[in-house]
Design a protein around this nucleic acid. Sequence first.
DNA 1: CAGTGGTCTAGACCACGAA
DNA 2: TCGTGGTCTAGACCACTGT
Lengths: 242, 242
Amino acid sequence: MAESRFLGSPVRLSTRLGEDLRGRIRSGEFPAGSKLPTEAVLVKDYGVSRSTVRQALKGLEAQGIVVTRHGRGSFVAADRGIHAGIQQLRSISETIAEQGFRPGMHYHSVEIDQADPTESDALSLATDDQVVRIRRSILADDVVVAYSYDALPRKLLGPEHDGTGIQGSLFAFLQREAGVVAVRATAQVHAICSETVGWETDETPQLYVVLDQVHFDLRDRPVLYSKTYFIEGRFKFVVIRN
Amino acid sequence: MAESRFLGSPVRLSTRLGEDLRGRIRSGEFPAGSKLPTEAVLVKDYGVSRSTVRQALKGLEAQGIVVTRHGRGSFVAADRGIHAGIQQLRSISETIAEQGFRPGMHYHSVEIDQADPTESDALSLATDDQVVRIRRSILADDVVVAYSYDALPRKLLGPEHDGTGIQGSLFAFLQREAGVVAVRATAQVHAICSETVGWETDETPQLYVVLDQVHFDLRDRPVLYSKTYFIEGRFKFVVIRN
DNA sequence: CAGTGGTCTAGACCACGAA
DNA sequence: TCGTGGTCTAGACCACTGT
């Protein structure tokens, strides 16, 4: 039974099923516009319940990867450009990589400072607490698609750790250095036009879609405050509204 | 049994349960920060299954109305300003009204014209098809919070209907005049800065969060293409990311 | 009509939180 | 330890699609 492959993992069954299907779609087994196996077939093939299959498909639909139609079936969506489902919390780099682009990330600066009022509020800090403030640019095929301003409580790191040496995914860094897993975030969507957001551009004002997020760990402690500025037009947020 | 109140309706059980809870919260029965009944209690009180209760709570959480915590319970969120869950397709006016503001809507213009390429593509129209183009402003307590540009296929309306006399919710209008129910939409989020979007402001450029949407009916026919320009800061989109 | 997804139920077991 | 939400299962019945 295929199910045996999936046992014993801490990750949700529906997530792993969704990832497997996404892999099969990317591999070309199901080209854009083609019909996926029916829910009943997926239930049989993967040895899971129909609820699990449906949750996996729902996740793929929220990512803009498949489209499900009552009475007809589920179909592979035609994708265009770098896009992400806005309500799924996933690594931006992973999202970029899964869509066939080459992800990149440049750490621009890492500094330790007193938390400003916005950060204290978002992270529930005392007034004299410090934060590690990180500025990064995120690239796809060497083109900047977003700038990210992140702040994490200094006290999450060991007292000897000054934040230098951060690289790669911040989620991975948090887990490795602080034993903290960010699993949930509340976000607000904003628009901004400014010439002072990026550091790699010239002085012309630039339009951004801003995701203003507070990330929480498993115990609902706020562990990361981040403002991510997605350059208008280079990164598309897909929303399925029902 | 309370369940009898809910039988025989075409609306999902979880939706009605969610609306009932939202009403109890708004009425003051559960003030901000207070704990809601446990899932087990809701199952008993409403006579529905736990899945249904959980789906209702999930919907309220997506709207930013409640926050659910593993091992602790569900709590009423502190709300601030006019906000909406971005992945739920609901009437903007209703959303405004439910949060204690006075909704308003001004129809600025209604015209019939050849569909432009963007509209033809979004609505799957032939090149010589016509659209009814509508421009509205949406208000809360007499303040404009958004401008909406909508286009619907002329052929949806009877040949004698020229689109005049439209008022109130477009969803309601579509259902009444064309027998069409919009149940699903795909949307993209954009940022824009322009002085030519609104018609009630002066000439200064204004920032907007744009929701670029195609609405579909039950048979998956595209029935409405709309660009809604939410004035930055006046309307907050809440996103719960997991 | 048969096939497919949409909703709802009942129950099991696990993981987290507070006492 | 016990109460709580999180995940998963099995099965029923309904609504929509195409023949």
